[in-house]
Amino acid sequence: MVTAEKRAELKATDASLIHRIVQRDESALAALYDRYAGMLSSVLNRILRDTQAAEEILQDIFYQLWRNAAQFDSSRGSLSGWLLVIARNRALSRLRRHNPASGDELSENTVVVASNLESSVAQQQLMSKVISALDNLPKEQRAAIELAYFEGLTHSEIAQRTGDPLGTVKTRLRSAVETLKRDLHS
């Protein structure tokens, strides 16, 4: 059963929920959690392959949002994008045993996402688009982009891993981001 209250919460924009969090409304945080925890949990698990570590980071990100929501400027960037960037950064730091990035994550990482991801329908639609865009890449390009995104490897680290010449890796990644930009953003 979806209550009227819950339905209103589903329709509230991220910006209005952030505003309510600034005013210490816990239910607004719960609503944002319901909206984005699944999306973040998926990428955290993919990077870390460790459910417990993924859940620790997930909880921590939302707690940080609760404490510092006032620093988030909804007019400059999107919350969903920020959450995705922070989740990936934290997971990669943990994976590579770096200390998490210091500094002010909320105001420094402005992320502009072209699609509105506030509804689960929109998230599902984007998911099928991303999956098929990656499926359409040549195999080596797809492998390179996955090593960069999910393992945090740089050009030369990918070259080392795959045994391919550095120049080849650079060309592959460049073509891959070009194709993805065309397929997903035009």
Binding site: M39, S42, R46, L84, V111, Q123, Y149, V177, L180, L184
Partner: peptide
């Protein structure tokens, strides 16, 4: 950052 961030959606749910 936004264009790259959505690659997260390639992760199994």
């Amino acid at each position: 950052r936004g264009r790259v961030a959505i690659l997260a959606f390639a992760s199994p749910p």
